[in-house]
Amino acid sequence: MNGRTCVDTAPLDEILTRYPASEAALIQVLQDVHRAYHYLPCDVLVKVAEALEVPLAKVFSVGTFYKAFSLVPQGRTIVRVCTGTACHIRGADRLIEEFERELKIKPGETTADMGFTVKTVNCVGACAMAPVVIVGETYHGGAEPAKVAKYIAEKEADHEN
């Protein structure tokens, strides 16, 4: 298959031991795969389909349906800049610009060292904290462009640990 890369299947084997071989487990398995690999590699999806006895077309259908899943490799940390109405009004655009400047990537792109992927999201349901930036699992309410470098540095320190 085009663009297929060989990935280590050890994390997948470990994930599969935790779930019954049933279609009902598909989304949970894909979520765990996504957490382990930071995306859904093609050959892992093929193995998931075999292990859960779900047609590959169904696995691909689910994998492409949800925004939470990506079929292209992503950075170890996903930066989500909320651009919902409240965040937009409170300056989400300037936050995006600042991430662009700091990481040298546009929304939807990944840094060359596979450290960060920047995405825009439409609302994270935390409008009272607007503007909101989520770096990995950390929510930054009242985010400021001047603090963007700090948000990134904190996470980079984690990457090194």
């Binding site: 047609p55 077309a57 169904k58 691909f60 259908s61 492409t64 349906f65």
Partner: peptide, 10 residues
């Protein structure tokens, strides 16, 4: 019982 194709994306 083949399920070779499915809807993709949304």
């Amino acid at each position: 019982g083949v399920s070779a194709i499915a809807t993709v994306d949304r």
